[in-house]
Simulated scan of single mutants.
Amino acid sequence: MNPSTGTSSGNLSDRINSLVKYLRSEVPECIAAGAIDMATGMLLAVETIDNHPQEVLDLLAAATLELFQGRTVTMIEEIWKERRGVHTDRHYFQEILVNSDNLTHLFIRTESRDDVVAVVVCRKSVNAGMLFAQARRVVKDVGPL
């Protein structure tokens, strides 16, 4: 993967690993980045400055799946689509920002595959506008998965 040109090479796993590395290096105050498969709820790739137990990483993946495609969220999406006359399988929620006591977490669906969600974890001091701008740029620059 050449992130600067957006050209893709290699298999899906290589491209997802490149996305995660590029997010980790380009997003301000980023301490961790990952990618989750929304079809399985599995963590596809992760890069972090700290070591975390595998069970914590697995829970993050499961929580991401619930956040984007849990039963209640899916019901809300279907109601809004129905009321707006939208007939598509595209998910309504594309980005979710979560602030904890010390960290800011951005969850963002990739443009080419809405079944892959990138996760960026930054220090709470991050400028939210820059976080969104850089994460969106990286996802776009990396190109289709």
Rank of each mutant, 00 (worst) to 15 (best):
G129I: 02
V121K: 05
I96G: 01
K81I: 09
V117D: 04
E78H: 07
V117Q: 03
K124N: 06
F107D: 02
H87V: 15
F93G: 03
R123I: 02
A118G: 12
E111Y: 07
I108T: 13
V116D: 07
C122H: 00
I76S: 04
V117S: 06
H87T: 10
E78Q: 13
V126S: 07
S125G: 05
V73I: 13
T110F: 11
A118V: 12
A118N: 12
R123W: 05
I79V: 14
L97H: 00
R113Q: 11
I108C: 06
L103Q: 11
S112K: 02
K81W: 01
V120T: 12
T74D: 05
S112H: 10
N102Y: 04
E95A: 04
E95Q: 07
V117T: 13
V86L: 15
V98M: 10
N127Q: 14
L103F: 11
M130A: 03
F93M: 14
N127M: 00
G129Y: 05
S100H: 01
E95T: 02
A118Y: 14
H87D: 09
S100Y: 06
M130R: 08
R113F: 08
E82R: 13
E77S: 00
F132P: 04
Q94C: 03
V117I: 15
M75V: 10
F132D: 00
V86W: 14
I96V: 13
K81T: 09
R123A: 09
H87P: 01
E82T: 11
D115W: 05
T74E: 11
Y92R: 03
V86N: 05
A128Q: 10
C122E: 02
R113N: 15
R109K: 15
E82S: 15
I96R: 06
L97A: 04
I76R: 15
A135I: 08
I79H: 01
T110L: 10
K124Q: 09
R90W: 02
R84G: 08
R113D: 15
T74Q: 08
R113P: 03
Q134L: 11
R83Y: 12
T104R: 11
C122Q: 05
D115R: 11
L103V: 09
I76G: 05
A128L: 13
D101V: 10
V116Q: 02
F132T: 00
A135H: 00
H87L: 10
V126I: 10
I108P: 01
T88C: 09
V73C: 04
F132W: 06
H105Q: 12
T110Y: 09
V98D: 04
I108N: 10
V119F: 09
M75L: 15
D114T: 02
I76N: 12
V120C: 04
A128D: 01
E77V: 07
S100R: 04
I108A: 15
V121S: 08
T88K: 07
E82K: 11
M130V: 04
T74V: 08
S112W: 01
V117R: 06
L106D: 09
D89G: 14
R83W: 11
G129H: 06
M130L: 11
S112D: 13
H87N: 11
V119G: 07
H105L: 13
N127S: 10
S125P: 00
R84S: 14
F93I: 14
E82N: 10
A133K: 05
R109I: 02
L97F: 02
E82W: 00
R84W: 03
G85K: 15
G129F: 06
D101Y: 06
L131F: 01
S112L: 05
N102I: 00
T74L: 13
S112N: 05
Q94H: 11
